[in-house]
Amino acid sequence: MFEAKLQQGGLLKKILESVKDLVVDGLWDCDGAAITLQGMDSSHVALVEMLLRAEAFEHYRCDRNVTLGMNHNHLSKILKCANNDDIVILKAADQNPDSCSLILESKNGEKTSDFVVSLVRIDTDQLGIPETEYSAHVKMSSGEFQRICRDLSQFGDAVQITCSKQDVKFSSSGETGKANITLTHSATVDKEEESVTVDLKEPVDLTFALRFLNLFTKATPISDTVTLSLSQEAPLVVEYKIGDSGHIRYFLAPKIQE
């Protein structure tokens, strides 16, 4: 039997909003330690990896490893019935389940809703993501990053990200013209979610499709800050921490200059 009880149902709502537009169906691997999800968009340009450790749950029981093939649109419809402060319980048999139950309990305990969602058979490629030493890490406000991606999308469909010791520059150009947004490494880090820290081993200069970045920033409500990790000729990593019990990590292949 797999059973996981989440005190704050709102977190699961946010996680679904973060993944459902990038990956329609996903394999939720549940083992004794965590629930992990890895999925790619159909063109294999972008990938999302979600990890939620057992300690995020008020109650977590996983007798045998089980993989739940979830249709994220169906799951999202159920979670739209949940309030942020509802308790959400996920339940599934651990011998090749063909369905998963979700129980929503209202905070005052007066309302209980239960749903059964059919699981889907998914045969997607799972990618092995090597641990990588990145040339640059940029930690910044997640709201700021979302704003930059949205604003630059008006000027072009790609953003060039260049990191130097002191700052990170986001540029985009198209028939409207050219736009550059430069963030400077914050000298003092008084409020973490408003400061920008650039940790540079060597300069990077890479170009990425804004369409995917604007899908990644749907995870903005999950964390006040976002960390970008970049290396020349390597996929970009955009990471949102889920408190200290997990993360949502997006990977995006760069555009290759001819």
Partner: peptide, 14 residues
Amino acid sequence: GATQGRLDSFFTVV
């Protein structure tokens, strides 16, 4: 012009 890379050329399918 730039062509869009794919993750398969960076990560291995397991």
